[in-house]
Simulated scan of single mutants.
Amino acid sequence: MTLVAAALGLWRPAIYDGIVSEELIPGAFSQDLLSVAAALGLLYLAVTAHGNRVKRQIIALGLLGYLFYAYGIYVIERAYNGLYLVYMAVFTLAFWALVCAGAHIRRDLPQPALPKTVRLLSASGAILQPLIFYPLWIGMLLPLMRTGEQIDSLYSIFILDLCFIMPTFLILSVLAYRSHGTGLLLLPAIYVLGFTLIFSLAVGELVKPLFNATLNPGEFWPALGLSMLFLVLGILHLNKLRIDEAGMTAANGDNGAYKAERPA
């Protein structure tokens, strides 16, 4: 569904006319570009999935998180075109896929391992996001709260960031600092989400000339820099993450015997 909806948006950007502000059309175009890439990535991961390829599952969770955010924008911003029900379906399925994944994280799996330096670096990069964006977004909301003004677009960013994304960064960073298995496993997924999401903003600046607009370096370079930070931290974390996948297979095959053999 993502592949169809995003490809239609690329093929015919006019579907956003009247429902997306003219200055935001390049952003919608770039988001569709990244959504096509995310959809193809998820299809590849699904087709090639076998055994306990945990790192691939982590990447898939990050891409699902991106789809939750990207189509959450369309749903919350009331993008009432012919694809709106598809946007709702992608948003819903991505959300419940993430919920199901979280519910099936096995507490009795072998503890993942990550070198201390990498763990602290990765956790610090994650906690930096709420430290920056909570004050920034709340500072933008306070004047609106004082005046009661209702903005016409991009209010979804406040909802998704303050209610979902920043708490996720905060929780996973604290868990990673404490060497908790859930934090070590899932922190790279939020970096995948962050990279795809912020990189789409940088691409949005690059495609502006296609829509008779001018690239804004003041928005392009920070978006590119932050997306590269997410990419580097995610790759570093995943490359250094050590998971006993053989032990996981044993646990899935004979859970009782595996638990009996685990050291106290």
Rank of each mutant, 00 (worst) to 15 (best):
Y191C: 08
L34V: 13
A126N: 01
R242Y: 09
A257E: 11
I59L: 14
V75K: 03
Y80R: 13
G65W: 03
D254N: 15
L229P: 00
E22C: 02
P130R: 04
S173N: 06
A70T: 15
Y155A: 04
I138A: 00
A49K: 15
T117N: 06
S179Y: 12
M140P: 04
D32T: 02
I76E: 04
L109Q: 12
Y69H: 09
H180Q: 15
L144Q: 10
A189Y: 01
F29A: 03
H180N: 15
G139S: 11
T182S: 04
W11R: 09
D161W: 08
G82E: 10
I165Q: 10
A103C: 05
F169P: 02
L141H: 11
S173E: 07
L197I: 09
G139I: 01
R107W: 05
T214P: 10
N52A: 14
G247Y: 01
L154G: 07
F230V: 00
G204D: 03
L210E: 02
M140F: 11
A39C: 09
L226W: 03
N52C: 09
L24I: 05
I151S: 07
Y84D: 03
V232W: 04
M166E: 14
M145Q: 13
R146N: 11
R146M: 11
V54Q: 13
D17L: 04
T117E: 09
V174W: 14
I243P: 02
M248Q: 05
P263S: 14
I58D: 01
L33M: 15
Y87T: 06
F91W: 13
Q57D: 14
L193V: 07
A49G: 07
I73G: 01
A251T: 07
L185A: 03
I171W: 01
L170V: 05
V207P: 02
L34S: 08
